[in-house]
Design a protein around this nucleic acid. Structure first.
Lengths: 224, 224
DNA sequence: TTTTGTATGTTGAAATTTCAACAGAGGGGA
DNA sequence: TCCCCTCTGTTGAAATTTCAACATACAAAA
């Protein structure tokens, strides 16, 4: 188990848990490691959600299937990343996605109830893990909420301004860098890249913003 | 405190907590009731998030202010509703919203750490409240994720079909009712009501769906 | 019964976005 | 240096959405 410690330490679920406690913690949680060949499923749609998964080696894909069987890729998971925590915590009876190994890969599965329910031994790390889990799920919540707030605007102009002003507010300055290139920003705002570039160009000519690659500067508020 | 029991029982935070335990629980949590006049603030922007709030009487508004001071209304809270739980659980250092009394109102505030950290008395309800809190935040997460999945489609047609097929999948049938009227559905999908009505009419004429008020029936999958 | 109001559907013009295609500006590597 | 590739900006036509208005159906109220 020790060979996975490096990747486990990167996992937010174990944040602030001492290295020496990890062995005890994993035993107490009844954490188990499973190996998968390419294409095998860790979780299948319509199974009840019970486990939190942590990618140890290799990579996995989260896939969703709609009513008619059409599949779409939701995300790609690499070592250290967590999955299934929202489904397990929400106690959904049917997982809406499948998690498939995209190559030979290993995963650690932990029964979510083992995390949230303190064990009879009153292990110290339990409290920290509950805090971590709550923190992870709540933080994801805020990120999603923020994205909805921006993308619920109807025009590219409004979306862009809403996004930039949110960044300005968070950064505490009207001059800041964003973590996306043009294509990624367009994907985030749910608009066309070319339309986004056109809008940025327009705002630049109007003197509303300055934009160089991922560095932005807002000069004055237009309509919000 | 007992006079609030009825509304507290409606609050998901106290789900499955016995009536007789509530008094003890509230004392242990150091839950406190505050009264506000119209316009007074329970939480202010740029305060650290620490408390979970439960509306007891009256109503509150959640308001957001952008970088330039423009305000927008996020939600209206009525008795039994919970607020601030995501901010408190995520441990944000600065709340991005204000919560204002929209009339004379009362609210119960609970230190979020008191919920997630078992007390020394090892109260039984603690475990249940942690489960409830995790469940509330995780469930909200799934709802937000679902909305993003639907609204990230680019056209009214795609959004509508994505929404309807998700409903069909969840309901387990191609015939189902939705909880929205046309205007509400348009707001959810982030499109224009008239455009939505037009799209529904088109699909109806094409024989793809049947739609009567909030009752829908899907006949065949178009493009997904 | 008539009136009133709400929910839904329809329409056409204006505004906006998407789409496809191309151009220019670097950055690396050969 | 030259070539290749990625990122960004531009453009114009086609598709789509928004907007404002009005029509219709139906239910509740008078």
């Amino acid at each position: 188990m020790e060979k996975y410690f490096e990747v486990l330490c990167m996992c937010p679920l174990f944040r602030d848990i001492a290295h020496w406690e990890l062995t005890k913690a994993l035993r107490c949680l009844n954490a188990r490691v499973f190996s998968f060949e390419k294409g095998e499923a860790v979780m299948n749609e319509s199974e009840p959600a019970k486990y939190v998964g942590i990618v140890l080696t290799g990579s996995f894909q989260i896939v969703r299937t709609d009513f008619f069987g059409n599949r779409s890729m939701i995300a790609n998971l690499v070592p250290g990343e967590l999955f299934g925590e929202s489904f397990a915590c929400a106690g959904v009876e049917v997982v809406p996605v499948s998690v498939l190994a995209s190559e030979a890969a290993e995963v650690m599965l932990i029964d979510c109830l083992k995390i949230s329910h303190s064990c009879s031994n009153a292990c110290q790390f339990h409290q920290q893990m509950i805090d971590n889990l709550l923190q992870i799920v709540a933080a994801k919540n805020l990120v999603l909420h923020q994205k909805i707030e921006v993308t619920s605007k109807r025009t590219t102009h409004e979306k862009l301004m809403a996004y930039l002003m949110l960044q300005a507010k968070q950064f505490g300055s009207l001059e800041f860098e964003i973590p996306y290139d043009r294509q990624e920003l367009a994907d985030y705002l749910e608009v066309e890249r070319s339309g986004l570039s056109a809008e940025i160009g327009k705002l630049r000519r109007q003197g509303v913003i300055e934009a160089d690659r991922n560095r932005f500067k807002i000069y004055k508020p237009f309509d919000v």
